[in-house]
Design a protein around this nucleic acid. Structure first.
Lengths: 103, 103
DNA sequence: CCAACCGGTTTGCAGCGCAAACCAAGTTTA
DNA sequence: TAAACTTGGTTTGCGCTGCAAACCGGTTGG
């Protein structure tokens, strides 16, 4: 539970901790919103993989998924929610403490 | 594979990324060496859990396990290897970059 | 002796990430 | 107009993993 003289080890959010999802969240955090194809290209994830990660993030309430049509072709846009932004910030702080403890 | 304007997303070492093992490594990194009971108390992990994590870390070559006897009772000491220390440092740098990209 | 404890390891199972298969709808080829 | 291909995803299946519980060989206490 703790690293000697460095306080307790934080209970990291596993939904965020997973690298694929951390990547998605980091991107959404920096660009505001993104569509499926953009995320595919930036992350290098497979479509199936991206789909399941975004579903899980949406289930956790960390992102919102908006489906629409551009002309006749479907378009899905992903965006961080307030709670997602907060959770990400918390994760960042916790992980920052852990790393600092490893100087 | 990349966060816009922030370079590629690093391929994080999953052996280290797992919180339980990260905790073990962080402790060994800060105290030099530790025995089984000390790690139990510091990490809060169950014995079985600690045993399997240390086995996995040893399989990866990141720690060494030294079994001996203190009087008649067994004693197992865990210690970071050079390669473990290097891998941990690399993980720290990579994760630091990711966090920095999330400012 | 026999029970309880110490110091671990092995086992079993549930959950997860990943890739591949699938699907629906539109577009191109012929 | 029908076959083949692309786009934009979702679902399925499997192998691995983390976790808790069961186990096990000593050792100490009554």
């Amino acid at each position: 539970m703790s690293i000697p003289e460095l306080g307790p080890f934080p209970d990291l959010d596993r939904v965020i901790h997973e690298p694929g999802r951390l990547m998605i969240l980091a991107i959404l955090n920096s660009v505001g919103e993104a569509d499926f194809l953009f995320l595919i290209r930036q992350t290098g994830l497979s479509r199936g993989n991206l789909s399941s990660h975004t579903t899980k993030l949406a289930d956790a309430g960390y992102i919102e998924i908006e489906k629409s049509f551009n002309e006749r072709t479907p378009r899905t846009v992903y965006r961080l929610t307030a709670s997602g932004r907060a959770a990400l910030q918390k994760y960042r702080d916790q992980m920052g403490d852990v790393l600092a403890a490893m100087g």
